[in-house]
């Protein structure tokens, strides 16, 4: 049964811009290989952290919203733990209100973009 998930992860600021892109590509590849369907992908860029994580005060925030089987999440999270460039991640299973909320936001973004 395909559930909808949303994962936010923070990449360490030490990397250069294209290394950050490469890590994001790596995780998107893991998702698509595992049979997930990526809905949206956001990059909030370099943001200040509310408290230092691993002695770093800033980080690249990325968000990926996707539909996937439940079993894939375990694999995804072990990849997150294994990769040392990711300093923090959070996967969130979206219930129907969350899905409705994100669709509403996507619609609003489309409206004021065109």
């Amino acid at each position: 049964m395909m559930n909808q998930y949303e994962t936010v992860f923070i990449v360490t600021p030490v990397l250069s811009e294209d290394q950050v892109k490469e890590t994001v590509q790596k995780f998107k590849k893991i998702l698509t290989e595992g049979g997930a369907e990526i809905l949206t992908e956001e990059n909030w860029g370099l943001k200040k952290l509310a408290y230092p994580i691993k002695h770093k005060t800033t980080g690249f925030y990325n968000l990926i919203e996707f539909k996937a089987e439940g079993a894939l999440i375990e694999k995804l999270e072990t990849e997150f733990r294994r990769d040392e460039r990711i300093i923090r991640f959070l996967t969130f299973k979206m219930d129907k209100y969350a899905v409705e909320y994100s669709n509403k936001k996507k619609k609003m973004k489309k409206e004021n973009s065109n």
Partner: peptide, 13 residues
């Protein structure tokens, strides 16, 4: 608590 985990909100300030 999720926002605190992602360092969007501080635990204490």
């Amino acid at each position: 608590k999720r926002a605190r985990h992602l360092a969007i909100l501080p635990y204490v300030t």
